[in-house]
Design a protein around this nucleic acid. Structure first.
Length: 702
DNA sequence: CGCAGTCATTTTTTT
DNA sequence: AATGACTGCG
């Protein structure tokens, strides 16, 4: 242990061993922040004999929480059941234990974004408001902002005149379904801690509280931290004001400032030595962030070598930009780099599509973080909805989801009827029984079948292993059949997703040693709270993600794409200087993820909403000192390869050329007309017969 | 009620 | 470009 601490620099070491008063660690990017936190925990357990379970470490994602635990255990060489959690998961546990005090039952549900939107849409329909003027997504965000105290109840009516009414119904519906949305978790978690007895109990229980990514906590989270440390003030928060990228969700740089105010005897330690990036990359990052006025001001330095210059590529279109990324990656791989060393960042999720296409065409395997998450896929949500309805007699949200999925002739009219019944009868099953009585023969039959199926699932909750239960659900409800019919092109991959769900569930059950209702309840809440990064695996693949999702990660080689005014910085963030500064911090985060090589790119023309638009270079590019940059020209590698095939086909070589097409799959080249990427290739595809395709849409396999 | 065709909206970032 | 909501017919 001693020798391990000696491996730290003086500031890091001091941050680890300091316990005299509340501690604020201002940790620059790549300054060994995680190291400090893990060593601090290890130090407490090993040297100060603090019980691990009495240390609370709050992180930003579940993945980070898990990693932190593992690292601590590796350092001290023994199991350390440290209480690591995210703010949300911590509140879930708090709420689970004390839900009754708030008039909720402990088996509550957590609504995800889609559930929330659906519910709002329903409410709007009930109020006869048209969804044009009242967009459900916009209302969802207003509701969230109100709940987070960003708007007062008066100011929110500026956005929508009937918002107060909507909000009231929304909250009532949530309560009736025994459900919380993401914001509620924090609100009610804090509510519980307002009770003096609970507040005392928990703040006494935890010997020490650590908060990571402190710059991105909002005022609710801050209050929770305050409540937990009231008795002892044993707290350490770690953050970097230059990496605050979530103000739109209520994160507050002020928290860093108010820390000194609320904890007057607080100690502040700055970590300014960077161990991650080359000098070139760090110089660029420093130069860019210097343009922000709202910061405490620190300048990172490093002993690392200068490294390669930052590459900049200007493409004509976004397709060409993607091609450049793909071919550069291919070269890097050829040189022996591992795919897992490489990450490609973009500002908005919509940018991923072209990049994916390009990578696929080059045969580079990639994983994508974020976007449509696994648990948000329709087939997964449908199966889960069946589980939920079987489990919870009051989950009306899920009931409506599955009522007519797969189609069983229960349309809007029946839906309306059921909604009416549910106003007086909160129990799903009883409501369905009542509904049956009011329907004509054919639909009555359908409802009967549905009830039977649901009862069947209920009975098997305990007897069948999770994997088999999932299988049973898709068969018994006719869901598999439904997929096959409705999605003839991709029902197989959808079924694959469902099987994947079964596997995950099975693994979860074995790992957590849970069964029956408890198992499904835990699982459902875990997946609702799973973050983008939680899906990230250590695979031998190139990683694609938004800049937001890259927070806290590092990669030897990083691409930042779409460096154009209006995209990065985003057009929606150009109104105020505060917004532009947040975009700049976002860019700063992106740049400082790179350890060795940074590659920046942009397109002169980009397709926005289907139409081609001219773009201007991002201001952030010009904020990097030119001597750190190196303009690169497009490599001809791809073209040469294509010409190669053209030539060989023309010469009528014996060995048949095999090509690959996105939709048609592998094909054998029959004829080629013309030259280069616009050459027309006629090839025979197993399932589609002979097709003539322009060369640039084909990948050459042999 | 279900379907096919039309119209409109989408792209900020996420627990 | 693509997805989803809406409309009117069978």
């Amino acid at each position: 242990m001693k020798s391990l601490i000696e491996g730290l620099n003086p500031q890091q070491r001091e941050a680890v061993v300091y316990f005299d008063s509340p501690l604020l660690v201002l940790a620059g990017a790549g300054s060994g922040k995680t190291r400090v936190i893990t060593y601090k925990i290890a130090y407490m357990v090993k040297e100060l004999r603090v019980k691990p379970e009495r240390i609370l470490a709050v992180t930003f994602t579940n993945k980070a929480a898990k990693e932190m635990k593992e690292r601590v255990e590796r350092i001290i060489g023994q199991e350390a059941p440290v209480f690591v959690a995210t703010f949300h998961s911590f509140c879930v546990r708090l709420l689970r234990a004390h839900a009754k005090r708030l008039g909720y039952s402990p088996n509550f549900l957590i609504l995800d974004t889609e559930d929330k939107r659906r519910l709002i849409r329903e409410i709007l329909r009930d109020l006869n408001l048209d969804a044009e003027r009242y967009s459900p997504s916009a209302i969802a965000s207003v509701i969230s902002n109100v709940k987070n105290g960003l708007y007062s109840e008066e100011s929110m009516s500026v956005y929508y005149d009937r918002i107060k009414e909507i909000l009231e119904i929304y909250n009532r519906r949530l309560k009736e379904s025994n459900a919380f949305d993401f914001d509620d978790l924090l609100i009610y978690g804090r509510e519980l801690l307002k009770d003096p007895e609970l507040q005392r109990r928990y703040s006494n229980y935890f010997s020490y509280v650590l908060v990571d990514e402190y710059q991105d906590t909002n005022s609710l989270q801050y209050e929770i931290v305050r409540a937990l440390t009231k008795e002892k003030g044993n707290i350490c928060v770690v953050g970097d004001e230059d990496q605050c990228i979530y103000t739109w969700r209520g994160a507050n740089i002020e928290n860093i400032l108010s820390f000194e105010r609320d904890f007057p005897d607080a100690r502040i330690i700055k970590l300014e030595k960077n161990y991650r990036c080359t000098k070139t990359i760090l110089d660029a990052a420093n130069a860019v962030i210097k343009n922000n006025r709202l910061r405490k001001g620190k300048v990172l330095f490093t002993d690392n070598p200068k490294g390669e210059p930052i590459r900049v590529f200007t493409a004509e279109t976004e397709t060409e930009e993607a091609k450049f990324v793909a071919s550069t990656i291919k070269q890097l791989l050829k040189k022996g780099r591992s795919p897992s060393d490489i990450a490609v960042f973009y500002r908005t999720n919509s940018q991923s599509r072209v990049l994916e296409d390009a990578l696929r065409r080059e045969g580079i395997s990639y994983q994508i973080v974020g976007g449509v998450k696994f648990y948000e896929r329709k087939e997964i949500k449908d199966v889960i909805a069946y589980l939920r309805v079987a489990l919870f007699e009051t989950d009306t949200i899920s009931l409506f989801r599955i009522l007519n999925t797969p189609r069983r002739g229960l349309g809007t009219a029946v839906e309306r009827e059921l909604r009416l019944i549910l106003q007086n009868e909160k129990n799903n099953f009883k409501a369905l029984e009542l509904l049956k009585e009011r329907l004509p023969q054919k639909q009555r039959r359908a409802v009967s079948d549905l009830i039977m199926t649901l009862q069947n699932i209920r009975e098997k909750l305990h007897s069948l292993p999770p994997y088999d239960l999932v299988k049973f659900i898709v068969v018994a409800t006719g869901y598999e059949e439904f997929l096959r019919k409705e999605h003839p092109e991709d029902w197989e991959s959808r079924m694959e997703n469902v099987r994947e769900l079964g596997n995950t569930l099975q693994e979860f059950a074995e790992r957590e040693r849970l069964t029956g209702e408890e198992l499904y309840l835990e699982f459902l809440n875990t997946i609702t709270l799973s973050s983008d990064q939680d899906e990230l695996k250590d695979e031998e693949k190139v990683t694609l993600m938004t800049v937001h999702a890259s927070k806290g990660l590092e990669f030897p080689i990083v691409f930042i794409t779409g460096l154009e005014e209006g995209l990065f910085p985003h057009a929606r963030s150009l109104d105020t200087s505060e917004e532009v500064e947040e975009e700049r911090r976002l860019f700063y985060v992106a740049v400082t993820r790179a350890m060795e090589l940074l590659i920046l790119s942009r397109a002169k023309k980009r397709r926005v909403f289907g139409s081609l638009k001219d773009t201007k270079e991002s201001r952030f590019l010009s904020e990097i000192p030119p001597h750190l940059l190196k303009e690169v020209k497009r490599k001809k590698a791809v073209k040469r390869e294509q010409q190669e095939v053209t030539r060989s086909a023309v010469k009528g070589e014996k060995r048949p050329k095999i090509v690959f097409h996105e939709k048609f799959g592998k094909g054998i080249v029959r004829r080629v007309e013309g030259q280069g990427e616009n050459a027309k290739v006629t090839a025979f595809f197993a399932n589609y017969g002979e097709k003539t395709i322009v060369m640039k849409f084909l990948k050459i396999l042999s």
